[in-house]
Design a protein around this nucleic acid. Sequence first.
DNA 1: GGCCAGGGGATTA
DNA 2: TAATCCCATGGC
Length: 298
Amino acid sequence: MTAGSDMTERKIRIEQVRDFHPDHIFDCGQCFRWSREGDGSYTGIAGGKIANISFLPEKDGSGRLTLYNVTEEEYHSFWRTYLDLDRDYGKIKKRLMQNDEVMRQAVAYGHGIRLLQQEPWEALLCFILSQNNNIPRIRKCIESLCQNFGVYRGMYRGKAYYDYPSPETLASLSVEDLDPCRMGYRAKYLIGSAKKVVSDGIEALQAMAEEQASAEEAFDYIRGFPGVGPKVANCILLFGMGKYESFPVDVWIRKVMEQLYGLKHPKEISAFVQKQFHPYGGFAQQYLFYYIRGVEQL
DNA sequence: GGCCAGGGGATTA
DNA sequence: TAATCCCATGGC
């Protein structure tokens, strides 16, 4: 990149941003398409738009957020909501940390976590692929899917970016077409789910992200998609439909619940989550997930 | 309700 | 080289 193009690159700055850290947000398991750069910023694609996001902490605990390749109009119409910047995380943390030393540790560790407001279609695809899978390979599957069958969105800093294929495109493919994406047995679920989106209409899926659709209603609907069991459904609810009381339980969360809280059975866990975290179970899940994975790697 | 195949890749034994 | 583990689901 030349100095000239750098100086003319559009960007927007937001000062005094609290409870924000790119590593915590983009590496807490909620999304798979953001890549860390050498300077600690992240580059990715969302809502059909490409951006680079960097954050510079200030002494007072807040910081300066800079979005590159983003106009002010795009910030207000998309990124502000996508990054969940209008939510008061201080309030949520306070509630979650009440009488809970484990959560105090987890929140201290992942203090900059925010839940991205992703599209239902994106969440449906990503979390079907996430089943019985690890994060690096989920990322590879998704990148390959987008590069082979997705929508070209342009070049940025020398790299081509592709969005997800449309439901119609994915529904028209065969399992063999998806072989290069190396999804294994998940490929048939992905195609089957795309076919259901096409036949039901994308509006039916998107309606579940509206506030008037209850978490129970949305859960029942997406459970009707092939490859969507209870765990995947809860992830889609939380990450793609704004149902923040959802608490996806995977092997890592089971580990937290057993080792840190002494809870083993699913019924004990859900009762505890309801009592201790409601209505912020989803936020609690992210703090705990990021915490246990970080601690395990040490 | 419990068991097990489904794919593939990274890590561990 | 073999076994194990992954942000599970579906079918029996």
